[in-house]
Simulated scan of single mutants.
Amino acid sequence: MTPTQATALLEAERDRTLRRLADLTGDFDSIVAASLDTNADDEHDPEGATIAFERSQVDALVGQARRQLKEIEAAEERLAAGTYGVCEVCGARVPDARLEARPTARTCVSCA
């Protein structure tokens, strides 16, 4: 994989992750706003999950998206250093197919 191809993959991954983060942040804000506008006892609601549970789920997904952004930054640093696509465990080349599927991969399939 060429550096140009890797850069394009990482940029696409960053764009996807930023869109996901924006959507999740909007969802979180909507859940919080909805809970402020009601005095419902959601902890004893037989209809389903509590607002606190939903808020916690979205918060966990936001954290996951933020960690993914850090992984993208780390991959960009490896690209700049010339170590992108090199397994951090055994030093073998990470197959292009793995990088295409998971642009932030740090290891080859055998070491994963």
Rank of each mutant, 00 (worst) to 15 (best):
residue 14 R to D: 00
residue 15 D to Y: 10
residue 18 L to R: 14
residue 18 L to E: 05
residue 19 R to V: 13
residue 21 L to P: 05
residue 21 L to A: 04
residue 25 T to H: 01
residue 26 G to F: 14
residue 26 G to A: 09
residue 27 D to A: 10
residue 29 D to E: 04
residue 29 D to T: 14
residue 30 S to A: 13
residue 30 S to W: 13
residue 30 S to E: 09
residue 31 I to Y: 10
residue 31 I to W: 04
residue 32 V to L: 09
residue 33 A to R: 13
residue 34 A to S: 04
residue 35 S to R: 14
residue 37 D to H: 06
residue 38 T to E: 05
residue 39 N to C: 03
residue 40 A to G: 02
residue 41 D to M: 06
residue 42 D to G: 03
residue 43 E to L: 04
residue 44 H to I: 03
residue 44 H to T: 08
residue 45 D to G: 06
residue 47 E to D: 08
residue 47 E to S: 11
residue 47 E to G: 03
residue 49 A to K: 00
residue 52 A to P: 00
residue 52 A to T: 13
residue 53 F to H: 03
residue 54 E to D: 13
residue 55 R to T: 12
residue 56 S to G: 12
residue 56 S to E: 15
residue 58 V to C: 06
residue 60 A to F: 11
residue 60 A to Q: 02
residue 62 V to P: 04
residue 63 G to K: 09
residue 64 Q to I: 09
residue 65 A to S: 07
residue 65 A to Y: 07
residue 65 A to F: 06
residue 67 R to D: 05
residue 68 Q to H: 05
residue 68 Q to K: 05
residue 72 I to G: 02
residue 72 I to M: 08
residue 73 E to C: 00
residue 75 A to R: 05
residue 75 A to I: 07
residue 76 E to Q: 15
residue 77 E to V: 11
residue 77 E to A: 04
residue 78 R to N: 03
residue 80 A to F: 15
residue 81 A to W: 13
residue 82 G to L: 06
residue 85 G to Y: 10
residue 86 V to N: 02
residue 89 V to G: 06
residue 91 G to C: 10
residue 91 G to H: 08
residue 92 A to N: 08
residue 92 A to S: 10
residue 93 R to T: 12
residue 93 R to Q: 07
residue 93 R to C: 04
residue 94 V to Q: 09
residue 95 P to S: 10
residue 95 P to A: 11
residue 95 P to I: 03
residue 97 A to G: 12
residue 99 L to H: 00
residue 99 L to T: 01
residue 101 A to V: 02
residue 102 R to V: 05
residue 102 R to G: 00
residue 103 P to Q: 07
residue 103 P to V: 10
residue 104 T to F: 08
residue 105 A to I: 02
residue 106 R to W: 02
residue 107 T to K: 09
residue 108 C to G: 01
residue 108 C to Y: 07
residue 110 S to C: 01
residue 110 S to T: 15
residue 110 S to Y: 14
